[in-house]
Amino acid sequence: MLWVNLAGVALIAVIVWWFWIYKSVGVAMQEGVIEVVVKDGVYHPSKIKIPANKGTTITFERKDPSSCAETLVIPDLEINATLPLNKKVSVKIPASVPGRYDFHCQMKMYIGELIVE
């Protein structure tokens, strides 16, 4: 039983680490045109590094029929857009101060991050 309990505690630790503590590294700075595909429950890519103080255009293409994925929200930049199925939608990201800006669907089930550096 001790081992089972230890395994349980370890599992909890793994969950905490994997979902909260782990910070992904090595996302390359992207300039020019960035294309994000919304498919199978996620944004590809989900972490986008863009230059600070410079406007950028990100093109989203939704291939996921789930109605959750239809709305894209970047709350901190006051941006929202509707993503029709199988259509490319250009979203203009204004020149922004460095920081991390979440983008997600209305229910926050699809989550991505805009890293402005």
């Binding site: 006051e78 941006i79 259509k87 979203v91 203009k92 990201i93 204004p94």
Partner: peptide
């Protein structure tokens, strides 16, 4: 620009 409206957001027809 603080508000991206639907003017900034357009479908791309690329057929």
């Amino acid at each position: 620009m603080s508000n991206a409206n639907n003017n900034d957001v357009s479908d791309t027809k690329h057929t």
